[in-house]
Amino acid sequence: MTSYCRIDHVDKIFIRGSTETCVLKEITLDIEKGEYVSIIGHSGCGKSTLLNIVAGLTEATTGGVILEGKHVNEPGPDRAVVFQNHSLLPWLTVYDNVRLAVDKVFGGKKSRAERDEWTMHNLNLVQMTHAKDKRPSEISGGMKQRVGLARALAMEPKILLLDEPFGALDALTRAHLQDTVMGLHQKLGNTVMMITHDVDEAVLLSDRIIMMTNGPAAQIGEILTVPIARPRKRLELVTDPAFLKCRQRVLEFLYERHRFVEAA
């Protein structure tokens, strides 16, 4: 029995000139349908490289990714990415940014009116319909990330890849957007793989937390299942023993057993 999404014995070696750097070593991970998986680790441990391999933007040196029984060898809308820096096209309005994805993915399947409706539906999911005619430069960082999320959701991906989606946001906006993502995951049941370096965020949002060892040749150090029932409430969790215990486990992993040497 194969899983929904399988990252199978992935190694990644970057070759620059005569030096070879092994970034990822023997990464094997199964993700179930509807699961929310976070990958956490210190910077430079190859988290983003792993996400790019799943996205198909980077090729694995050995091993590969199998999604719904099919080998992933190029990027595609079934693995939509929300990029850390939003990556909206600045010359298109908010609506057109999402519409570009909708037209590309559903061009042959839906009529014009349906595509318009689907675009608006996804903007509505992230509460961005009010700014649909604005350009990315006219909206805040949090709003841009919402639009990026709407664009990814509009592709109806099999797996949603979030590359530090809240990294560039202030704490309040980040909390707000985390709640949005949590709500959408609850409502739509997407399979999500998220890269993060925020322990609280990982525990709050994830079903499982994948902790990576430090590079070079980073591996999966430990996998923690978060035994907290959904829907989760941010305020209640602060005092929840299960939450605190998970948080402590991740912190111990990151700061005791795998301290980031270069940061010292």
Binding site: A55, L57, E74, P75, G76, P77, A80, F83, S87, K104
Partner: peptide
Amino acid sequence: QDYRNVAAVLQLNHFE
């Protein structure tokens, strides 16, 4: 590179 990534994920053809 961000825009190229977006284009890659959307599988835009050369003309698009």
